[in-house]
Design a protein around this nucleic acid. Structure first.
Lengths: 123, 123
DNA sequence: ATGTTTGTACCATATAAATATGACAATAGT
DNA sequence: ACTATTGTCATATTTATATGGTACAAACAT
């Protein structure tokens, strides 16, 4: 579970701060596959924002296939189900990598930079 | 010269993405002092945005004394040192990687999968 | 069945971002 | 001088974003 925090001075919308923290939580392992997130109302109260703001964050992550929501039950970190061929999988991985290398490049980061950052995250 | 890239899914305004890419381009050495940037019109066409959006980015960097514009001639990198702290740089790299890893994760790929794919691309 | 908890949908409002146009000014090349 | 190219400015308009308020719908517990 994460300890959510909002920074009103950050100049970053609340819902996006929440998105980022969830993503960070997944990458760092603080959020595990299948784990339930706080309910929109609970988190809204905790962070003192409207429940729509939370719902918007959750919604966007659901569209990105990162979360899974069930009305009446809750919101969860999506369990990945792989039902594509090995070949398609590799193609997908390649596509994702290409896209991100391009973005990283535009900020002056090299593939080596990315790799060493990723390795850091493994520890 | 930079290969500018706009990511509509990033949740960061276009003009700010351009600003960041120029700043990081200077820091990483991809943009050198005195170098001319694309004209506002050229970059607008390339990125398929309005020229005002590019002009806004350039303008803000001129105010920050990072760019130098000469009406009728073009926009250039100023002879000053752009300082971005290690911390900030790492944050940016981390953000990019974070985004990357989360998406990959949602397709069932691990950080190790990504690293080995990236290493393949290096060869 | 009923009530509670869950996410969802819709509406309203304010602000920010991006576009569209057009006119203008400085520079360079001819 | 003339022309083309550059950035600038102003203004209006449209679109997207951001947050809040309220009511609705699905799942669950009892």
């Amino acid at each position: 579970m994460i300890n959510f925090v909002l920074d009103p001075k950050a100049g970053i919308p609340f819902y996006r701060q929440i998105i980022d923290q969830i993503k960070y939580g997944i990458v760092s392992g603080n959020l595990k596959t299948g784990e339930q997130l706080p309910t929109v109302r609970a988190l809204a109260v905790e962070l003192k924002v409207n429940l729509n703001t939370i719902a918007k964050a959750y919604k966007e992550l659901e569209i990105q296939n990162i979360l899974e929501t069930q009305q009446g039950t809750g919101t969860f970190i999506r369990k990945i189900e792989v039902r594509i061929s090995e070949k398609e999988k590799n193609k997908k991985l390649q596509d994702i990598c290409n896209e991100f290398v391009t973005i990283a490049h535009s900020y002056g980061f090299s593939v080596d930079d990315i790799i060493s950052q990723l390795k850091k995250q493994l520890k």
